[in-house]
Write a protein that binds this DNA or RNA. Structure first.
Length: 646
RNA sequence: GCCGACGUAGCUCAGGGGUAGAGCAGCUGAUUCGUAAUCAGCAGGCCAAGGGUUCAAAUCCCUUCGUCGGCUCCA
């Protein structure tokens, strides 16, 4: 009866016959390839447990712990082990959810007392016990009602809530020892498969990320197939801390924050201000050469205007208001209004379009205190903002031009990035048709460029859909920088028009876009990206002149003047310190070049440059050095910036 | 805003009811030196701010502000 044979096809094309009812584990063992490495498998495209029983033929592929999917399964299983440990140590705890995330996993619990660092250590050792007892991880399927009853009896109200939203009649759970968790799976065969893990931190997290829901205790951890992987990751975290822009901002004396000033308001020190200035100069030039016009709008605009634009209704909680002569004014959180008024200041012809207004506009937004984060999340920031007004038929090309702009700039800085399209959110203005048209324009432009992107449903701005470009910080956290947002509504609200070739008035289309995003945030990510060692063209100090003894002070001062005159950003260190001391200091300040001047250089009327990577250049004249710097700047900036951008 | 941790000299940190500590940086002096730290001396603090408990608070308690890790939000 049960003698029927089924055929299994392996990834390499090999085929084998098995009696029906064979397990994945057995089918994989039969070919021996990668034996013991598999923690799960892909069966006809779907991820399944090794214990999964085959009832019919199909394609089989082993999944190992070091593959992307395998790692996710391992981490997910580790989160179950952690939840089991927590339930053993704190029987009153309720479990919520515990997924694998980018660099590890977490699990949310409801407990009477928040976890402490010491608790983490206790939980870790309990987990080690669970792991060494190699508990079988079993999949159990049961009717939904039974599962609800089960979790209700155990006071797992969060699981019950989740179950009530799952439409399936049969749901799956995974059990190891006494611990049973609602889960889709797959999982590792037994807890001994967890090889190297660490619990990293505790944090509060709202149930389902909703402020109105109870706050749970989240434990973050990570898990790897082997000790080395874990060690490497912990090392990465340590290294990342060293390139944290807040750390480097202090060490390199770029910027600071002050209690007395208030949170989220950066203060730029000379080198930070210079760095920002270089970035902004670069930006202005790049915009001018692409047909943008530089404009400037005021910081305070009457509240009535914000009402007209829709910001008052949709963005009020993020805005600051003040009163002048009994008139209410709002501090701008965006730059678009003045740009609209400039457009409206005269009659526009179709021949004028597209119009591209660019402003390095400083805006203020009331961000909740808990989200402020160095330069990456502040309350006052300057956007490299532009508003493009064009005819509907020009929209497509304009969006492509912007995408090209973004790609070119990211290339110059050497950033990796991800693009996301965000669609209509609940709280929004405009007609369904406008939203559809705008969304299609964005998707179409990315598709034609062949750029991979994800779609975030409901994440758009209240006035239109957008493409976001995300950069990663040193700790792999993503930050939105460039964004391209369509807006079919503002032109309407402000009744913007142009006279078409037909002599009639038409409505232009508007695109809001930023390339760097906020200059502050971009600088923060930039600092981490380069670990403070800026390329020559960006570095606020390009070279430090270091004298060997006091005897060369006069000559060094002359060299200093010459180099400044040639457009270099140079500092002079003629302190009465030993050469090694001064080199060390310049090195720690990550200055690209150190120009050593001793008696030899004075005699030869030159300088001896040393790169920050330690390489020593031959003695040369100031003119030759300036030429060298210029060449290097141009190379690094892809021909954009040479000497003396400022 | 919410949960938790933290706030001591310019920086990095020790101290934990009974006279405020170190290293680096700073200042002064000596040294005049060739590619990642020369030596010595001096100075530096309302222990985040405000309130309380106590004979006595940097230390214990409360409030506020700020920072850090998250949640949420966003450039």
């Amino acid at each position: 009866m049960n003698t029927e044979q089924i055929e299994v096809i392996y990834v390499d094309g090999e085929r084998k016959q098995f009696p029906r009812g064979v397990s994945i584990q057995q089918a994989l063992d039969a070919v021996g390839k990668g034996r013991d490495r598999w923690i799960a498998a892909r069966w006809n495209g779907a991820l399944v447990d090794l214990r999964f029983v085959l009832e019919e033929g199909g394609r089989l592929e082993g999944v190992s712990a070091d593959s992307k999917e395998g790692l996710e399964i391992l981490r997910h299983s580790t989160s179950h082990v952690m939840a089991q440990a927590v339930k053993m140590l704190y029987p009153g705890a309720s479990i919520a959810i515990g997924p694998a995330i980018e660099n590890g996993f977490y699990y949310d619990f409801e407990v009477d007392e928040p976890f402490t660092q010491e608790d983490l250590a206790r939980i870790e050792s309990k987990m080690k016990e669970i792991i060494s007892s190699r508990l079988e991880v079993k999949r159990r399927e049961m009717p939904r009602e039974e599962a609800i009853r089960f979790f209700r009896e155990r006071n797992e109200s969060y699981k019950v809530e989740l179950l009530e939203e799952i439409p399936d009649e049969v749901i799956s759970c995974y059990q190891q020892g006494d611990f049973l968790d609602l889960c889709r799976g797959p999982h590792i065969p037994h807890t001994g498969y967890v090889k190297a893990f660490k619990l990293l931190s505790v944090a509060g997290a709202y149930w389902r990320g909703d402020e109105s829901k109870p706050m749970l205790q989240r434990i973050y951890g990570t898990s790897f197939p082997d000790r080395d992987g874990l060690k490497q990751y912990l090392k990465f975290l340590e290294e990342a801390q060293k390139r944290d822009h807040r750390r480097l901002g202090k060490d390199l004396d770029l910027f600071s924050f002050s209690d007395e000033v208030g949170g989220g308001m950066p203060i730029y020190h000379p080198k930070g201000a210079l760095l920002r200035h270089i970035l902004e100069s670069f930006e202005k030039r790049e915009h001018l050469r692409r047909g943008y016009q530089i404009v400037m709008g005021p910081t305070l605009l009457k509240t009535d205007l914000w009402k007209r634009s829709g910001h008052f209704d949709n963005y009020r909680e993020n805005m600051y208001f003040t009163e002048i002569d009994e008139q209410s004014y709002g501090v701008k959180p965006m730059n678009c209004l003045a740009h609209m008024l400039i457009y409206k200041s005269r009659i526009r012809s179709y021949r004028d379009l597209p119009i591209r207004y660019f402003e390095l506009g400083t805006v203020h937004r009331h961000e909740k205190s808990g989200v402020l984060h160095g330069l990456l999340r502040v309350r006052q920031f300057t956007q490299d903002d532009a508003h493009i007004l064009c005819m509907p038929e020009q929209l497509h090309e304009e969006i492509q031009r912007i995408i090209d702009f973004v790609i070119e700039v990211m290339g110059i800085f050497g950033f990796e990035y991800e693009m996301e399209i965000s669609t209509r959110p609940e709280k929004s203005i405009g007609t369904e048709e406008d939203w559809e048209k705008a969304t299609d324009a964005l998707v179409g432009a990315l598709n034609e460029k062949g750029i991979a992107h994800s779609i975030c449903e409901g994440d758009g701005a209240f006035y239109g859909p957008k493409i976001d470009v995300k950069l990663k910080d040193a700790l792999d956290r993503k930050w939105q920088c460039a964004t391209i947002q369509c807006d079919f509504t503002l032109p309407d609200r402000f009744d913007l028009t142009y006279i078409g070739a037909d002599g009639n008035r038409h409505r232009p289309v508007m695109v809001h876009r930023v390339i760097l995003g906020a200059v502050e945030r971009f600088m923060g990510v930039l600092i981490e990206h380069y670990a403070g060692a800026f390329p020559l063209w960006l570095s606020p100090v390009q070279a430090t002149i270091v004298t060997v003894t006091d005897a060369q002070a006069q000559f060094a001062a002359k060299v200093w003047e010459e180099l400044k005159e040639l457009g270099l950003r140079v500092e002079l260190d003629d302190r009465n310190e030993k050469l090694g001391y001064k080199i060390r200091e310049a090195q720690m300040q990550k200055v690209p070049y150190m120009l050593v001047i001793g008696d030899r250089e004075v005699g030869a009327v030159g300088i001896a440059p040393r790169r920050r990577d330690g390489t020593q250049l031959e003695l040369m004249s100031t003119g030759d050095f300036a030429a060298l710097v210029e060449k290097e700047c141009l190379e690094a900036s892809k021909g954009r910036v040479g000497l003396g951008i400022i």
